[in-house]
Design a protein around this nucleic acid. Sequence first.
DNA 1: TTTTTATTTTGGAACGTTCCAAAAAACAAG
DNA 2: CTTGTTTTTTGGAACGTTCCAAAATAAAAA
Lengths: 354, 354
Amino acid sequence: MWLQLGRLHLNRTRTSIVDIARAAGVSKSTVSLVLQGSPLVNDKTREKVSALINELGYVYNRGAANLRQAKSKIVGIVVNDLTNSFFAELAVGMDMVVQSAGYVQFLAHSGESVDRQRQVIASMRENGIAGLILSPARGTEANDIKPLADSGIPVVVVVRNLPGAKASTLVSDNYAGAKAAIRHLIGLGHRRIAFMGGFVDTAVFSDRVRGYRDALSEAGIPLNDNFIIHSAPSRAGGVAAVERMMVFSERPTAALCLNDAVAFGVCDGLRSNDIEPGKGFGIIGFDDVIEAKTAVPALTTVSVDPQGMGQRAAQLLLKQINAGQIDQETIVTSVRLVVRQSCGAPVKQPEELA
Amino acid sequence: MWLQLGRLHLNRTRTSIVDIARAAGVSKSTVSLVLQGSPLVNDKTREKVSALINELGYVYNRGAANLRQAKSKIVGIVVNDLTNSFFAELAVGMDMVVQSAGYVQFLAHSGESVDRQRQVIASMRENGIAGLILSPARGTEANDIKPLADSGIPVVVVVRNLPGAKASTLVSDNYAGAKAAIRHLIGLGHRRIAFMGGFVDTAVFSDRVRGYRDALSEAGIPLNDNFIIHSAPSRAGGVAAVERMMVFSERPTAALCLNDAVAFGVCDGLRSNDIEPGKGFGIIGFDDVIEAKTAVPALTTVSVDPQGMGQRAAQLLLKQINAGQIDQETIVTSVRLVVRQSCGAPVKQPEELA
DNA sequence: TTTTTATTTTGGAACGTTCCAAAAAACAAG
DNA sequence: CTTGTTTTTTGGAACGTTCCAAAATAAAAA
């Protein structure tokens, strides 16, 4: 049988540095020098070699280089929830600086699963990352990144912090942001203000709630623990929180939400109860995702600038990689309240109309 | 000067297979065998070696292995816009199957820039990807992936197709989806139906518009080219499209939108013009992103199941990687119309009220 | 015991780079 | 033409794996 129906299996091996060398009549060392743009090599030679490189379609094998140099151009990024715009934008910010620094990133989604997170970090490690940026899944412990940190690979933890971890940290000033938001609502005349969304086990939640509490007591407004309404930190969670609130006899007239996703959900939930967000009820979100300004009503929110935060995180990581030494640094980025339409002045509730 | 203030620079080299071998009193080959789970090695030996592996905190160097085997466990994924939930979910779907197949992914965002896309693909190639999934930036040409494909690395193109490219393709049935959506609107009594969002240069746009056109003429409804309202394929674009529409003397009573993002924008735009989406105006989106079902009104949309699509794409790629041969395959995934609240029956416009 | 067979282990080459010390070539000065 | 200097090029070892043919050991058969 001469006629093979199978597809031809190219055993053409990748052209390597020595193929170029042979073709150019120089040694592999010289080709290597050219590749690194070394000034040591004669212009004439450089030219000849460069030409061959293009002609033969050579592609640099960074893996082989890493083997020798023990320093890759790869960073790892693990994010707890890529489907949440906040984190997607965070990732895009990182992507920008990583890419323009000549690195590539492994970028994975842990889906809030510590197991998957552990797995993917291990996998990245085997593949030789030079550093890691982690936006930890709920329930992550300092131990989960210990092996990495111990082996001298810099780690930057973002958004949620990880007490006790040997890593740098970059978080937004959640406390101050929440405080500013509540002060603003109080300034508008609101007195019964809820906090919606989130679960107790994250630092983000507790910091924001602390800001909420402190701002209220600072204004002499008594705290009502019922007004802290837990829910999933998602749009659906916001809807659920509103349902929970509707049964209260004395309802809040405004709410600070854990994040913008929850805030949008709260808008949805209010609408299905025929309350117009921003008119009958004041809403403030947290994060300032892109949709916040085009939504109707435009969302008043605490702007965290996720892209900018991603960029800073990446810069911090690259700095540590290049320094070759790990300085544990903690950065708290400042936030600002962006006032738009969704935080209306309170309207009197039925029982209050004389 | 004996006192150095600098940080200690660990020159502890990564423990390797031969360190384990030495410690266990066997050869490196044996350790390698254990690592690959080979049945050739004696249970007693395997046990001893495995113990040492844990104890010494050995981490496998996949880079070195790749060098020898010329086959990595890395795939590349490049997506045109990660901040768009559709693509984020697509990526998450891929992540799931890639990860559970024991691979890791380079995942990058091209931001619709062909240059960045070219760069990042090149970078991934140098780092030794075994395959690539590409959701191409607008304006991508078949040539952009030619070198990859020529060197025998399988490429799967998703969402937007790339005519003439040596790659497999996975797209949704945009034509049929649009047709079904329009038929439904017609069934509800709408006659003046717009198509909103998108620019002419993408196949996605033209396929969906073709479905829109065909469904209309099939029902004997005359086409009105003004009713095809171009805009950026984003939430902001949707808002803009509505503004453009409001000046028409005879306005549409419903619209099919290029995607869900545009549809949400259209809702926003209508609200700022005091039209209640789903009541005064019927809206159908495209994609069925997660927010679609919790939004108010819940969005009627053509469900594309981005996660599922991502999964299929990844499966297809892995299949080709393992097959070691490239079968150019084209898959058109079917879509289904999910009817929710946003597509209301039409209301008579002022001038039509007798 | 010796031979045969089955099981387990092993050294060394190979993969594609970088690095280094040293060789070669080119140029300058005497 | 020598010698000294500077510029350019080079071979080979090293990085951490896998693969292979062959060696060593253990078990079974004679």
